[in-house]
Nucleic acid binder design. Structure first.
Lengths: 130, 130
DNA sequence: CTTGACCTTCACATCAATGTGAGTGTTTAA
DNA sequence: TTAAACACTCACATTGATGTGAAGGTCAAG
């Protein structure tokens, strides 16, 4: 498929798809006329990239993570440097921290909303009965 | 306390502390000489801001969230607009999505690391017994 | 009273993620 | 065959979170 369709199906602009390629996140083959050609699997990859970016990870980290997030768990072990492993472990820890933090905050918001909404309900009730 | 100490205690640069203030995230009182004066409680607030920013939220959203994340759950209900409630609900949903996404990815990394490390161990073993 | 370590504001710089548009070629369909 | 829709590259603009430095005020210690 070409860039327009991929953009449409992923909700990621053409511009950004080219940018991801420039950043080494995706590799598109080229048709004879120079147009980028994407495979079906690129849809998921792009969504993954989108999610990771949205989660605050920079492209250079995503670039390192992507090969490890393959669905058919490519046991691409041969040349994993220990430096790479360290990076992954560090990033994993960072993800965990982020998850914890987000969870705490989401729960705090939930609590707040509960409080506010129940008070509002009570007020509505008292107005109704007055 | 003054800006230098707060910066040191939070790990957030002076520059950023001023930026947070400019963005309406924190309010510092001023001493007679114009120096910013922070209270003990600002340490936590700054850490919270740091965490939320690090989690990828923009300052204008953080500004809306902060009053709801108070520790002594200030039941600051009176003038919550329903628009505000909508924002909170939307942001809560976004946080949940983000949490799910990050969790999936972290787990994928964990799986990968497990695989890689166990293979590495096996290799080391076979080398030892050869 | 001077020096050094603070603080102030202001402004320009940078980096990553995006938008936007110009200028040009390609494909599609009327 | 021409117009519309799409593709390409290149490049400049913008936004948000930061860094950095200049020019200057304040304060404590020698």
């Amino acid at each position: 498929m070409r860039i327009g369709e991929l953009a449409e199906r992923t909700g990621v602009s053409r511009r950004l798809l080219r940018y991801y390629e420039e950043q080494g996140l995706i590799i598109a083959s080229r048709a004879l006329n120079g147009y980028r050609e994407y495979k079906e699997s690129h849809v998921d990859v792009v969504l993954q990239i989108k999610g990771l970016l949205d989660a605050g990870l920079p492209t250079r980290i995503i670039q390192q993570l992507l090969p490890c997030l393959d669905k058919p768990q490519t046991i691409y072990v041969p040349d994993v440097t220990s430096e790479m492993i360290t990076t992954l472990q560090r990033e994993q820890a960072r993800l965990s921290e982020r998850i914890e933090f987000l969870t705490r905050n989401r729960d705090a918001i939930a609590d707040y909303l509960d409080t506010v909404l129940s008070v509002k309900a009570a007020n509505a009730e008292s107005r109704a009965t007055s």
